[in-house]
């Protein structure tokens, strides 16, 4: 089947690829572009492990078609740190041990980044509901919530 030519921006860089009409953005990122930071936990929009930001909107990349990225700006976990400098959320996730196995971590970081961009001082409840689309089976969420709270404080101070 003929592929669809897509030109898009990923983490600030112009990218062009060919994809099939039924291929998801997640498949494109992982299998065509080698960006395996976004994970497939379910493929049905239920786990959030594949979270990316498209044009400022948090989405499950397993529910977006590769072709839909045409002309948009996509942000993935690979673009979260700036050079040597980790994003405050990444830093706080490490300090608080907000990850055990770490498979959910890229999705949580992207979702938390989106949350703090929209609401820089969330309450615990707002964090819990803001991250309710991301599943973590290892941590019980306690340390994740604390890491996000701490990062929010740090980012406001900055």
């Amino acid at each position: 089947m003929a592929g669809i030519a897509v030109s898009t921006t990923i983490n600030g860089d112009g990218v062009e690829y060919l994809c099939q009409p039924d291929e998801t953005l997640l498949d494109v990122l992982r299998d065509r572009l080698g960006l395996t930071g976004a994970k497939e936990g379910c493929g049905t929009g239920d786990c959030g492990a594949c979270s990316v930001i498209v044009d400022g909107r948090l989405v499950c990349s397993c529910l977006v078609l590769g072709a839909e990225a045409e002309g948009r700006k996509v942000e993935t976990i690979e673009g979260m740190a700036h050079g040597e400098q980790l994003h405050p959320l990444q830093q706080k996730f490490l300090e608080h041990a907000a990850l055990q196995c770490g498979i959910c971590t890229p999705g949580f970081l992207i979702a938390a980044k989106d949350l703090l961009e929209k609401n820089p001082s969330p309450t615990e409840e707002e964090i819990r509901f803001g991250l309710a689309g991301n599943l973590c089976r290892c941590t019980g969420y306690d340390k994740i919530v604390r890491a996000v709270q701490d990062a929010a404080t740090m980012m406001k101070g900055a």
């Binding site: 960006l35 395996t36 976990i77 490490l94 970081l109």
Partner: peptide, 21 residues
């Protein structure tokens, strides 16, 4: 003590390689 884990940075930057990666 409670230091940061050795595989931590790989896991927060998406570089850690899991089964399907």
């Amino acid at each position: 003590t409670r230091p940061v884990r050795p595989d931590g940075v790989d896991k927060v930057t998406g570089r850690a390689r899991y089964g399907a990666d």
